[in-house]
Design a protein around this nucleic acid. Structure first.
Lengths: 216, 216
DNA sequence: GATGAAACATTGACTCAGTATATTTTCTGC
DNA sequence: GCAGAAAATATACTGAGTCAATGTTTCATC
């Protein structure tokens, strides 16, 4: 092994980066559906096959970053302390991520991230892809909880409750940042929101939503 | 309008049925990915275009029946009595569906349904499609709850909790029936399972899953 | 440095899902 | 029967993703 990283690896990262940036710019300019992979390849100065080598599908060009974090929730639960509850583990990890403004929970507003989010919101097939990431995380968590010895069916319910709260929070971040708020502003009251969301999971829905306000 | 149904409508239903059955048989025989739409069309004695007229996509050939029920949960909540909680509404509807052995919650074991389920379990792209149906139902429910006046973010969490419990129950039905149990057997203790699942949503996860049993 | 082997990129041809258009068949109401 | 509507078809196309064969780089070893 050579020192550092190796020229090969560096070039590979650079090519991947170039393809990704090129694609995001073209998508933003003309919309996801109106850009073909062949065009992206040409603009990034590689062959079409190379694009598929780096990103398995056209959708991955936009959603790859978020797919790298599907394992985060399950990791929080797997690595929790002996006496910690599942809710505590997921909530604690999420609060820590807020502290460090983790981009994977939506707490950043750099232009490239905004591009990607806008794109996802405006493109049905990308929204589907995002919901796939959610259900994958949920499935992994359900498996882990079931493996810890509980009823697998209740484990699946628990996984839905936990990932549901987490995803709702992330979506709220995305929504507000796309509405124009600064990442700082969204992060400021994120902890408070987090407590409310997980409290609803920890203490139950009870008679939610209380007396109906708008029957229609 | 002629009496009854009209020859045109009947033929249309029959053609759709024939395409659907043909597709399911071919898929079961050789796997979803190894049957082309052109083959299905030929086997059903129609043109490829006709297949896409009846079923928008190849996936719909398998998942269309389940997509007709994405609105069920949101309907339960929308049409609930004035004082009823959301949990009560969803649980009550589900218990009623158990009573009548509703196929849409997995309580049937006729061969064609088994085929479809097996196919979905064995085909990643169809699993994705199923998870899409889930997230669609969840999104609609979140919207309704938010429209009733609560905090939209908490409404999204509540929707995840409710649909999570419901989906876990349906998956359990599917799992057991695919494992060879009779629909009757699965239905027999379905009500009890339903109570446990929704209790976990109504009363909260608390310190779930209690002391860790299998740390690894 | 030179060299051989693996890894990677490229090319071009291919399959198949899905769309568009124009045409023909098939049913319905009169 | 016949006019008009609705559905089915043939045909041709776009674009995603795959495959096989062939270059081209990179690196490890001599």
């Amino acid at each position: 092994m050579t020192a550092g990283e190796g020229l090969r690896e560096r070039k590979k990262r650079e090519t991947g980066m170039r393809i990704w940036r090129t694609a995001l710019d073209l998508f933003t300019e003309r919309g996801f559906d109106h850009v073909s992979v062949a065009e992206i390849a040409a603009a990034a100065d590689v062959s079409k096959m190379t694009v598929f080598n780096y990103f398995g599908t056209k959708e991955d060009l936009v959603t790859a970053p978020m797919m790298n974090h599907v394992g985060d929730v399950v990791r929080a639960v797997r690595e929790r302390a002996a006496g910690e509850s599942a809710v505590d583990a997921v909530r604690r990890q999420f609060l820590e991520m807020i502290e460090v403004r983790d981009p994977s929970i939506g707490l950043n507003d750099d232009p490239r991230s905004l591009q990607a989010r806008q794109l996802i919101q405006n493109t049905p097939v990308l929204l589907q892809r995002a919901s796939l990431a959610f259900s994958q995380a949920q499935g992994e968590l359900a498996e882990l909880l079931a493996a810890e010895g509980g009823d697998p069916m209740l484990a699946a319910v628990a996984a839905a409750q936990l990932t549901g709260a987490r995803n709702a929070l992330i979506n709220e971040h995305h929504r507000r940042i796309l509405a124009g708020e600064s990442a700082q502003g969204v992060a400021d009251d994120a902890a408070e929101r987090t407590e409310r969301a997980f409290a609803q999971v920890e203490n139950g829905l009870g008679s939610y939503p209380g007396p109906k306000r708008a029957p229609q």
